[in-house]
Amino acid sequence: MKKTESSQPREGAMFIRNYIRPETPLRESERARLRIAKLFLNTASTSGFNAHDFSGVVEEELGINYPKGISGHFSHERFWTKADIADILSAITIWFHTTHKPGEFLKEVRRIFREEHLGYRIDDKGGVHFLVDEEFERTVAAAVAGLGAPRFAAALHALHEAMAHLGTTRQSGKGLIRGVFEAVESAFLAVIGDPKVNRLNGEVLDKHLKPLLLARYSGHGDAEDLADRFMDHFKAWVKSAHPFRHGTPLEQIHEAPLDLAIMSATQGIGYLRFLASLSAPA
């Protein structure tokens, strides 16, 4: 459904106002939190920035209790390292509007986001946004949650590596496609559990995945047709991503347009989630 103008993310608005729903999962980084905390403390001590006023605005705008230390004073390091990530992203906007040096602030926080490969960007008015969009982040987060089993550790690592190619430092459409392909391939190999198979292609999909589909949907009268249609789509995705797989030197592949790479990644992550829900044949 197309968003109305009023539902579009607004520049300069706090992240929590633009995006947050109760079920919205968010990516974060402990290293980025600590770096932001240190930047905040350095700013407060060197630029005349009133950190106490900032804390009050955070409480007023976000409806949370700003943490305090044993002495009863506001604990800024605890806030930046322990608060909910949605509150952190929204507090960055508050910080922007209360600092005396917004240009320097944007430069430094953007650098942290970039170097830590976070899936967000900051607009020129201090508003934080998803690098792609909310639905894409939901899809990624759901895939990460589904790959929690130890057998999917390699697939999860590959997915994280793929998402790093959306950052401004390493942004690469071919890297994104390649990483998601590796994640899907790894998950597929973990599911079928056949040591003689080490590649994902149409032939091994027919041999190993189709029996799983037929067993899973055996109660459906059109199970065979359903499985064939699924296989056709999956094999088409594999074929489209194959030029970017790990067997081809990355530098020898033409860069993929980012919008097409995101579309391919979205499809691949869907297959990844599906594979993570399957059990290997007995």
Rank of each mutant, 00 (worst) to 15 (best):
residue 139 T to V: 11
residue 53 D to H: 11
residue 148 G to R: 06
residue 13 A to G: 03
residue 220 H to M: 13
residue 93 T to S: 08
residue 222 D to R: 02
residue 198 N to I: 08
residue 225 D to V: 14
residue 266 T to G: 09
residue 91 A to V: 10
residue 231 M to D: 05
residue 40 F to S: 10
residue 233 H to R: 07
residue 141 A to S: 06
residue 56 G to T: 01
residue 109 V to F: 04
residue 212 L to T: 03
residue 278 L to Y: 00
residue 61 E to I: 02
residue 108 E to H: 12
residue 89 L to Q: 11
residue 204 V to Y: 03
residue 233 H to E: 04
residue 169 T to E: 13
residue 113 F to G: 01
residue 207 K to G: 00
residue 37 A to W: 00
residue 221 G to S: 07
residue 268 G to N: 07
residue 272 L to P: 07
residue 29 S to I: 01
residue 236 A to K: 00
residue 117 H to K: 07
residue 248 T to L: 09
residue 51 A to V: 07
residue 87 D to I: 07
residue 170 R to T: 15
residue 133 D to M: 08
residue 1 M to V: 09
residue 100 H to G: 09
residue 30 E to P: 01
residue 3 K to D: 12
residue 152 F to M: 10
residue 235 K to H: 01
residue 103 G to I: 15
residue 224 E to T: 15
residue 162 A to L: 09
residue 161 E to P: 05
residue 203 E to I: 04
residue 136 F to I: 10
residue 102 P to G: 14
residue 168 T to M: 12
residue 207 K to L: 12
residue 254 H to G: 06
residue 276 A to P: 02
residue 278 L to H: 03
residue 197 V to K: 02
residue 159 L to Q: 12
residue 262 I to N: 06
residue 61 E to F: 01
residue 97 H to G: 11
residue 197 V to L: 02
residue 98 T to I: 09
residue 176 L to E: 02
residue 83 A to N: 05
residue 88 I to N: 07
residue 215 A to F: 09
residue 58 V to M: 01
residue 255 E to Y: 03
residue 185 E to I: 10
residue 53 D to W: 12
residue 23 E to N: 14
residue 158 A to H: 14
residue 4 T to A: 12
residue 11 E to L: 15
residue 146 G to V: 00
residue 132 V to L: 13
residue 144 V to S: 06
residue 69 G to S: 03
residue 22 P to E: 11
residue 225 D to C: 08
residue 258 L to G: 08
residue 88 I to T: 15
residue 233 H to K: 00
residue 89 L to Y: 14
residue 218 S to K: 15
residue 7 S to N: 15
residue 267 Q to I: 09
residue 55 S to K: 04
residue 273 R to P: 01
residue 278 L to K: 04
residue 244 F to V: 00
residue 102 P to E: 15
residue 207 K to F: 04
residue 58 V to I: 09
residue 71 S to T: 12
residue 39 L to M: 07
residue 137 E to N: 01
residue 138 R to S: 12
residue 35 R to I: 02
residue 67 P to K: 08
residue 47 S to H: 03
residue 50 N to Q: 13
residue 262 I to S: 02
residue 99 T to R: 00
residue 105 F to H: 06
residue 169 T to Q: 11
residue 100 H to P: 00
residue 187 A to T: 15
residue 126 G to M: 12
residue 65 N to D: 14
residue 31 R to A: 05
residue 261 A to K: 14
residue 33 R to N: 04
residue 62 L to W: 00
residue 124 D to W: 13
residue 15 F to Q: 01
residue 96 F to Y: 14
residue 93 T to P: 01
residue 3 K to H: 09
residue 230 F to L: 07
residue 151 R to P: 07
residue 9 P to W: 04
residue 137 E to V: 10
residue 110 R to W: 05
residue 56 G to F: 08
residue 114 R to G: 09
residue 232 D to Y: 08
residue 225 D to G: 11
residue 9 P to F: 02
residue 64 I to L: 03
residue 118 L to K: 06
residue 24 T to E: 10
residue 249 P to V: 04
residue 194 D to C: 04
residue 12 G to K: 15
residue 77 E to F: 03
residue 179 G to S: 10
residue 56 G to H: 08
residue 271 Y to K: 03
residue 179 G to I: 11
residue 228 D to E: 12
residue 213 L to R: 06
residue 87 D to S: 04
residue 131 L to D: 11
